[in-house]
């Protein structure tokens, strides 16, 4: 390349001006295109979000109406009540248990899927996607039938001499239902991240005399971390706020956060408490998202 001549620079200037005007026009067009969706989400997501926060600072009068004459932290204080606290801890514990079970079961599955030939991989992927698309309520109901008093499970247990195992309406049934419901959410991100790992890295670690455990611990595990975190968030958040599964499979003694929140708006009419619990859920969700994206930026 030689130095540009004057005649080559001149049209450059004119087109820069044109370019600027074009960019401004493009920007306006882009905004116009985004506006309906943007507006909709502000109206039906951001405004409701603000309303939940406002209600969580309200108080409930004798008639169950929410009052706002003073901003109050009452509802948040009541989160420490023994009943509410128990429900919070139970929900957290069951959500963590569900996430851990899903992770332990899904990890070898996802690894195996990444090692089989392409056509098997596609078949496995489809077979994981089908439950993911299948109606959630129906999938929970199927377990209700199976675990029921005269259902197939009790037939089997009495056949092998275990007698009647009463699983339905316990927290174990809820965990079972949530694992069943959310397992695809763990498998898919795990598979996506394990599949991207270069196999030579694992081979190299073996060549350098790493034991299988060491090469798992120091190569595979750190490299698949985005999938582990992504999948865990995708399982943990819906488990924590689960409503349908505990209502169908859980018992009256094992109320979880989801049902308790809904009850504040339907039966108990304690909107500030229900709102405060929703805010807690939102904060946990935001916190996990921040963790996820921070991990993401560290990696890239």
């Amino acid at each position: 390349m030689t130095a540009p001549t004057v005649t080559q620079v001149q049209p450059q200037v004119a087109s820069a001006d044109l370019e600027a005007r074009r960019t401004a026009k493009e920007r306006r067009f882009g905004l116009l295109l985004a506006l309906p969706g943007y507006g909709y989400l502000i109206m039906l997501f951001v405004v409701p979000l603000v309303m939940v926060s406002v209600y969580s600072f309200g108080t409930r009068d004798r008639f169950g109406q929410t009052q706002f004459d003073r901003l109050s932290l009452d509802a948040y204080g009541r989160l420490a009540d023994p009943i509410v606290r128990d429900i919070l801890f139970r929900s957290l514990w069951l959500a963590i248990l569900t996430t851990v079970i899903c992770l332990v079961v899904a990890y070898p599955f996802a690894y195996f899927m990444a090692t089989v030939p392409q056509q098997w991989r596609n078949l496995m992927l489809v077979l994981v996607m089908i439950p993911f698309w299948t109606n959630f309520l129906v999938r929970n109901y199927a377990w209700r039938v199976i675990l029921g008093t005269d259902g197939p499970l009790s037939d089997i247990t009495s056949l092998v001499g275990l007698g009647d195992i009463r699983l339905l309406f316990t927290q174990w049934a809820v965990v079972l239902g949530m694992v069943y419901g959310f397992l695809p959410f763990m498998i898919l991100p795990l598979y996506a991240s394990i599949d991207r790992i270069d196999g030579r890295l694992l081979e190299a670690s073996r060549d350098l005399y790493a034991t299988p455990w060491q090469s798992f611990r120091h190569v595979l595990l750190p490299l698949s971390m985005p999938g582990i975190i992504g999948g865990s968030i995708l399982v943990f958040i819906p488990s924590l706020g689960a409503y349908v599964t505990p209502e169908i499979l859980g018992g009256a003694k094992t109320t979880l956060m989801g049902s308790y929140i809904v009850n504040q708006f339907q039966g108990a009419r304690d909107w500030p408490l229900g709102s405060a619990l929703s805010v807690v859920l939102i904060l946990i969700m935001l916190l996990s998202t921040v963790i996820y994206f921070r991990k993401d930026t560290v990696r890239t």
Binding site: P48, Y55, A242, W271, S275, M285
Partner: peptide, 17 residues
């Protein structure tokens, strides 16, 4: 956000709205 907000929270938000 709407993709990761739990259903129950979304339900309460819209109920209040």
């Amino acid at each position: 956000l709407p993709l990761i907000v739990p259903d129950v929270t979304m339900a309460i938000m819209l109920l209040l709205f």
